[in-house]
Write a protein that binds this DNA or RNA. Structure first.
Lengths: 288, 288
DNA sequence: CTGAGAGTTACTCGACTTGAGTAGAACTCC
DNA sequence: GGAGTTCTACTCAAGTCGAGTAACTCTCAG
């Protein structure tokens, strides 16, 4: 490289005045700067069977407080700053806050069996979706919301929350976007688009099913998220030919299908983090 | 649909008490909540020719203030809340803040020719990369940074900033990640990974070149970002066969290459927003 | 217990895409 | 004019895709 030497200078400057840096920090007053509120919102998706058809559901909360009382919103809440008035509180990272919100709204936080709760939450896949900070999106004040996307296998039905809020798993096709609180309709749409493309090039569909599953169950996840039926034989071939997607357990289901049919082989999630080749959505035609 | 009726109830509740909602809002005091600082950081990438090889560069700032004085950092700054002390200030959206940071650091903001500046900045592609909020990432206080990724065609060399800071386009392979300020090394790595995969399935490579360009220039963008040479004939074929990627202008370059060679056809960016089929990176083999 | 129907898995086929190589076209420099 | 360079067109074998067919193995009804 040309070596204008940024790294060398950085080394020197980074090591010679640690004491001065420490002095600066102890004299620093965070209150000089004006505040902005930060929240974490979660788009939690799961597959639930409605009238024997597997359907994509999202966890929503009916707001019990102003603003937007009575409207559906994504579960979420304010993030606490690093130094509280007592100075003793350990602060939570953003993903931790997202997990906490999810646990609270699904009622898992209230459970007495801590080990069982941890086991269930450990299976939830969580990734950051994006941050929404347009002025005016919250009528109270300037709020920056960090949205997270969660894929969960069959979490329990939510129990009533503390703030007179009601949480529920709602089928995504039934959500009235025009009457959601804040800009949550847009966040939900972004989440659904992200979820759809995540299934294409990662093995994350396994996050929606039990630890042991059949290829058909996996296909039902894809069909529910993409909203279209897939060709079963081709899906089967592609899943098995993608290295590291699934691992054969050797076992099969105890029974065939409800109305007859062969017993299906059971698989568990493989070790791959990316799918090669990817499973592309059919019919993604070009506009114009 | 099952019709538990979320949308119907939401309609009712959303329309019948607007007056009460307005009353609530006017009585609302934002200062009740504790503050968290929010910043916007920009990872601006461009291609510059170094010793006749096109090389990926990132815009970095050598910090003129504590903490991390003298270290390289991403350009960025604090976001201002919606209601200032004067109550009159119009607040900026997050992407606007990112563009402003970029304009300030490249010296474009100082230019007198506003129309020329706008034209150059309009060609910059900007997307949100992610938000970084781990406690302790800024030693001063709890700071949430919203990072943006920018692709720019040949912006001017930065001029000296106001805070005794020096900005420069630095070749990404020469960046010493161990001595960057805050967690900016991680943000940079995330940005490079995102940029690489964006080139695969979107036509955004065109954001790095002039409005009219040759296929070879486009290939050099891919080679610089992916860090590996590509098979020229195959690249040519794939670009032309992806609908909406490029449009033929009918013209050619005025001269052949510096050391001889045919004149190249000139293209401009097409209208597609997604590439079908995608241009996948070669040699993305499976780990383990 | 037997046949019909259903669910799972294996196989086939033509169309298309891919990576690698070859070759021709068009240009600059000497 | 010739050598070397750059751009573009073409070929070919291997692999992948969508669609269809069919075999295998269960459940259920009669």
């Amino acid at each position: 490289m040309a070596g204008t030497g940024p790294e060398r200078q950085a080394v020197v400057l980074g090591t010679d005045d640690d004491a001065a840096e420490a002095a600066f920090l102890s004299a620093y007053d965070p209150r000089r700067y004006e505040p902005i509120a930060v929240t974490v919102d979660v788009v939690a998706l799961t597959i639930r069977v409605v009238e024997s058809v597997p359907t994509l559901h999202v966890l929503l909360v009916r707001r019990g407080q102003r603003p937007f009382v009575g409207r559906w919103a994504l579960p979420g809440g304010f993030v606490r700053p690093a130094t509280g008035p007592d100075g003793a509180r350990r602060d939570e990272d953003l993903p931790e806050a997202a997990v906490r919100e999810l646990a609270e709204e699904t009622g898992l936080a209230a459970s007495t069996d801590r080990r069982a709760v941890d086991r269930r939450l450990a299976r939830v896949y969580l990734e950051q979706l994006g941050t929404y900070g347009t002025p005016g999106r919250d009528p109270r004040m300037r709020v920056i919301s960090v949205a997270y996307l969660a894929f969960a296998p069959d979490l329990p039905d939510p129990t009533a929350g503390g703030d007179a809020e009601t949480a529920a798993w709602v089928p995504v096709v039934g959500v009235d976007r025009d009457h959601m609180a804040f800009d949550h309709a847009r966040i939900l749409d972004d989440a659904l688009e992200r979820a759809g493309s995540k299934l294409e090039y990662t093995p994350l569909a396994t996050a929606f099913v039990a630890t042991e599953f059949t290829i058909t169950e996996l296909r039902e996840v894809y069909e529910a998220v993409w909203g279209q039926p897939l060709h079963a034989p081709n899906f089967h071939r592609k899943v098995l030919s993608a290295p590291g997607f699934v691992e054969d357990t050797g076992a099969t289901t105890a029974r065939g299908g409800a109305r007859g049919g062969r017993r299906a082989r059971l698989y568990r999630a493989g070790t791959a983090r990316l799918l090669h080749p990817a499973l592309l959505r059919p019919g993604q035609e070009e506009p114009r």
